[in-house]
């Protein structure tokens, strides 16, 4: 029963509520920040446009909040299944880790490990394919872009 329910598209109430909250928070932040900026001699200082944008954000947040609370959020998307969610969460975390270590570890080792993890998470089980892809793609990528086309990539380090 639950399984069937989770397959159905749902109203976007929670995402709409969250978006409205974020918009309102950003608008408040803009107002607070802009009060610290110098006031000009005539209309048109650094705070004028930010305050106008904050007003637009407030209005949009209010309307979106109203839409969500009245149950008028449009039905668009099926909810993520647990496997999909887990896969995306792992990949976002792995990508963040890759971005964090890219310069320290070097392009080749970091990319080889990252691609191996990525393809494994996506369900590639053929070990030869997995290793071949994770080793050859970064090497080919480095040779083509860094060596031939002189595109500045992160330092290669081991194994070149």
């Amino acid at each position: 029963m639950n399984e069937q329910a989770s397959d159905r598209p749902v109203r976007m109430t929670v995402p709409d509520l969250a978006s409205a909250m974020i918009a309102a928070a950003v608008a408040v932040w803009i107002v607070i920040e802009s009060r610290r900026w110098p006031a000009p001699d005539f209309v048109g200082g650094p705070a004028v446009v930010p305050l106008l944008v904050a007003t637009v954000l407030f209005v949009c947040a209010g309307l979106l909040l109203r839409t969500a609370l009245m149950g008028r959020s449009a039905v668009v998307e099926e909810p993520l299944q647990a496997t999909q969610f887990r896969r995306i969460a792992i990949m976002v975390a792995a990508t963040a880790a890759y971005a964090g270590v890219l310069e320290k570890v070097g392009f080749l080792p970091a990319t080889m490990v990252y691609l191996a993890v990525f393809t494994a998470v996506l369900g590639l089980r053929d070990r030869r394919m997995l290793i071949g892809y994770s080793v050859l793609l970064p090497a080919a990528f480095y040779l083509l872009f860094a060596v031939v086309l002189k595109v500045p990539l992160p330092p290669a380090q081991w194994p070149l």
Partner: peptide
């Protein structure tokens, strides 16, 4: 409405940095 909110966030992103006339950091 969602298009307007998306555009408003784009405007906020556009304002990050030095302001275009006085060079004041925002």
């Amino acid at each position: 409405l969602k298009g307007a909110l998306s555009a408003a966030f784009g405007l906020v992103i556009a304002m990050v940095g030095l302001d275009p006339i006085g060079g004041f950091p925002r």
